[in-house]
Amino acid sequence: MKAHQPVSQASNEPVEFSEATMTKIKELISSYPEGKHKSALIRILHLVQSEKGWVSVPSMDKVAEILNIQPIEVYEVATFYTMFHLEPVGKYVFEVCRTGPCMLVGSDDLIDHIGKKLNIQVGETTSDGMFTLKTAECLGGCGYGPLLQCKYKFHEHLSKERVDELIEEYRSGKYDQN
């Protein structure tokens, strides 16, 4: 099974955001004082990623248009913050914390285990497009490690057995509602 990119990323077609996302974006912008609307940018990128799964160049261009700023002002921010996926990813992205305190309680083994279980390397996506495995620097749950985050949800005190279950739970759509 070879890892591959699940969706086309070459498209330069303009994108549209859903009505729900647009409503939230407008609310956000109006919550800032006159002329300070650029402050909403990072949160808008989170909203875009939640809808589209990742942050493409056309998505960034659209955000620039909405905020009435230059596209480069969006690119430079999206590329700075590591939470934004600038390439297509799987439906579920497992970001496993690998920093000191998590390493002390076995994160290295856990990362290896997930990679073997899903038959991918860190940074790759399964061929069915379901899972991407990434590592993250300190996720701020040091006392509850090893841990991973997926779609903003924390899964803590992980054992290999628990991670195996977790993969099945995600596959079955258990966390899709949240």
């Binding site: 300070k36 650029k38 990072i42 949160r43 002002e73 921010v77 700075f80 939470m83 993250a136």
Partner: peptide, 23 residues
Amino acid sequence: APGGGAYICGEETALLESLEGKR
């Protein structure tokens, strides 16, 4: 307001930049 995954934004002036929607 949320950040986007950058330790440096805990430094107060980096935090302010981020709050202004910048790197």
